[in-house]
């Protein structure tokens, strides 16, 4: 039962992820990305990580993608107004993509191939356990990432205020 659901979910995830790349209209790209986030949330629920699934939906589908959609709606992008990319940017994009691909391959190789099984009674994704883990075992990375967010927020406020002077 759960294996069937897993395969259906994975197929939907991959199809919607490909939809992001191949959609001609940027609006459809954004909407496929939202669909992709939903299917990933489905995977979290399959792993009994309800809290992660819901937070994933709130943060990515509910907040960040709304901003994406906002920008796409305002810019009204289409094929004619699309700026022509210079070869320098294309070159940089190829290198960045290649490095990302290498990282993914490396992490896949490090994992044990073929060893896929769902942890049946894992409670790792529930609220209390995540809270305890975050504030004991992973306190330093947690605090460092929150400082990163704070600096990003201050930076964007500074950038937005620059013109007033």
């Amino acid at each position: 039962m759960s294996q069937t659901i897993f395969f259906i979910l994975s197929a939907l995830t991959i199809i919607s992820a490909l939809g992001v790349l191949f959609a001609k209209n940027p609006m459809y790209s954004v909407l496929s990305l939202i669909a992709c986030f939903f299917t990933v949330a489905g995977h979290y629920i399959m792993l009994n990580a309800q809290f992660l699934a819901i937070v994933h939906l709130i943060v990515y589908a509910g907040a960040i993608m709304v901003l994406f959609l906002f920008v796409v709606m305002l810019l009204n992008l289409n094929a004619e107004t699309e700026p022509h990319k210079t070869s320098k940017i294309k070159f940089a994009a190829v290198i960045a993509g290649g490095i990302l691909f290498l990282t993914i391959i490396a992490s896949l190789k490090a994992g044990i191939p073929g060893a896929y099984h769902l942890p049946v009674k894992s409670n790792i994704g529930l609220v209390e356990i995540i809270g305890q883990k975050l504030f004991t075992d992973y306190l330093l990375p947690f605090e460092v990432s929150s400082i990163l967010f704070l600096s990003a927020m201050i930076g964007s406020v500074l950038l937005a205020k620059k013109e007033k002077r």
């Binding site: 309800q50 819901i54 937070v55 709130i58 589908a61 907040a63 529930l126």
Partner: peptide, 18 residues
């Protein structure tokens, strides 16, 4: 009877804007 009931409501509401 979700153990993250409130957050579920919150997630659905935030999707309603779409």
């Amino acid at each position: 009877d979700l153990n993250v009931g409130i957050l579920y409501i919150f997630a659905v509401v935030s999707i309603g804007g779409y």
